[in-house]
């Protein structure tokens, strides 16, 4: 501990931020650290995470992981590919729905487009509320409406994503130069035309980039939707896990890792080219 307590003096001599940690803040940091440890203790205590459980569970987990990958069930690969492509389909269509439906929300929630101050607040609140409902809960709801399967997954992904995409849209619209919009309304353009000719050209590349980013996240989401019966590779995970077919689960995991990694890479590359 002795060297640690000397840090501020040493840092003050060498670094550009001297005197940030006085004696008072150091005490405060210790208090923070201690309360974090205490809170952690309290949390773990309530979770029945005991050394015995861990010592029993971890070797078992090790065994299962070994079974998954030594070797994985390559014969199951065609089924995995089918499940993965359905996950991609869910993500693609869901993202498209969200990208379109988020437009009115984004326009509504942007402060610089509205004459009423209350409207953007309502819009932002609505977007936050939408975001709060997890995809899985929405999926369970939509299964009620359209039955189990990928369609329910598309709807869950589509609706949930509106929250984030709409928020990003609104924030981007807020950075559009207000003066160029004023010029358009000065020439007699209607609010809709101001949006079409003043806002859309400025923000379109960024909107596409947001949609690509959300697609990336949605591919991940679409791999788990099947766990509650909403289509995609998750359904196969559920089946193989229940049947304790670990080598097949291993194949699925490899497939998911490759797919997510690939989509991540492609989405990042495309986004870099857009801006």
């Amino acid at each position: 501990m002795t060297p640690a307590t000397r840090t501020p003096a040493a840092g003050g001599g060498a670094g550009p931020a001297p005197g940030r940690a006085g004696a008072g803040t150091r005490a405060l940091r210790i208090v923070w650290a201690l309360s974090a440890v205490a809170a952690l203790w309290w949390s773990l205590g309530g979770l029945e995470v005991t050394p015995e459980r861990l010592s029993r569970g971890l070797p078992q987990a090790g065994t299962i992981i070994r079974q998954m990958f030594t070797p994985p069930n390559w014969a199951y690969l065609p089924d995995v590919a089918e499940g993965l492509s359905q996950s991609v389909q869910i993500a693609a269509l869901g993202t498209f729905i969200a990208a379109v439906l988020a437009l009115p929300f984004g326009a509504l929630a942007a402060r610089n487009l509205s004459r009423l101050a209350a409207l953007p607040l309502v819009g932002k609140l609505a977007l936050n509320v939408i975001r709060t409902f997890p995809e899985l809960v929405l999926a369970l709801l939509f299964i009620r409406a359209v039955g189990p399967g990928p369609f329910a997954g598309v709807l869950a992904v589509g609706i949930h994503s509106i929250g984030m995409v709409g928020k990003l849209y609104a924030e981007r619209i807020e950075t559009v130069d207000r003066a160029s919009l004023e010029a358009l309304s000065a020439s007699g353009a209607s609010p809709l035309e101001v949006f079409r000719y003043g806002v859309v050209p400025e923000v379109l590349p960024d909107f596409l980039s947001f949609a690509l980013y959300r697609f990336d996240l949605n591919v991940r989401a679409a791999t788990v939707l099947g766990l509650v019966g909403a289509g995609g590779i998750g359904e196969k995970i559920q089946i193989m896990r229940t049947a304790q077919q670990w080598p097949s689960v291993g194949t699925i995991l490899i497939g998911v890792i490759v797919l997510v990694g690939l989509v991540d890479y492609v989405s990042a590359r495309l986004r870099a080219r857009l801006t």
């Binding site: 991940r220 788990v224 998750g234 995970i237 896990r241 689960v249 998911v256 990694g261």
Partner: peptide, 11 residues
């Protein structure tokens, strides 16, 4: 790249 809930299911 491993989705959190996939990991949870396996665990």
């Amino acid at each position: 790249t491993i989705p959190d809930l996939v990991l949870a299911t396996v665990l």
